[in-house]
Amino acid sequence: MSDSLPDGLRELLRTAAGAGGGPWHRLLRPGDGLLLLVSAALVAVSYPLLWRGGVADRAIVKRDGQLVTELALNVPRRFEVEGAIGTTVIEVQPGRARVLSDPGPRQYCVQQGWLTRANAVAICAPNHVTLQLGGRGGANAGYDSINY
C-alpha cells in the first residue's frame, strides 16, 4: 500500500510517525525566531488597528439629507426632530442610539432597535429623517450596515 504513495507524502508520514528525530526548536534558526516575534507583534497590532472602525462615538441626525444635529454618545438624552409628517424622537445612551418613536406607518426605523456600530443607519423614510452613527475613522471606515 505505502509503495503506491508519492515519495513526498511517504516522507511526511514517516516523519509523522516520529522517524525524524531531534527536538523541534533545533529547526529554528536565529532569524526565524526574530521573524516570528516581529510577525506576532504585527498580527497583534492589526486587531485594534483594523477593528477599531466599528466603535461609534456620535449620532448624526439628518432631515432631507441636511444635518440637523450631532449628538455625542457619552451622555443619555432624547432629541426631537420635526420631519415631513410629524416628530421623530431619537434616544441616545452611552455607546448606542435608537429611534424611540416615529410617525411613519410601518415603523421600520423604530423596530431596528439600538444602533451600536459606526456607520449603522436607521432610516425613517416617510418622515424624511435618518439616524446614523459616526466613528473615529471617518465616513467610510470600518463597518457599513448596508454592505457588510
Partner: peptide, 28 residues
C-alpha cells in the same frame, strides 16, 4: 479587510507549523 487579522493569525500559526514540518523533512 475586517477579516485580515483573523487570516493573518491563521497564516502565522499554520506558516510556523508547516515551516517546522518542512525543516524536519529537510533534516532527514
Amino acid at each position: 479587510f475586517y477579516l485580515l487579522p483573523l487570516f493573518a493569525t491563521a497564516a502565522l500559526v499554520f506558516g510556523t507549523i508547516n515551516g517546522l514540518i518542512a525543516a524536519r523533512l529537510l533534516a532527514l
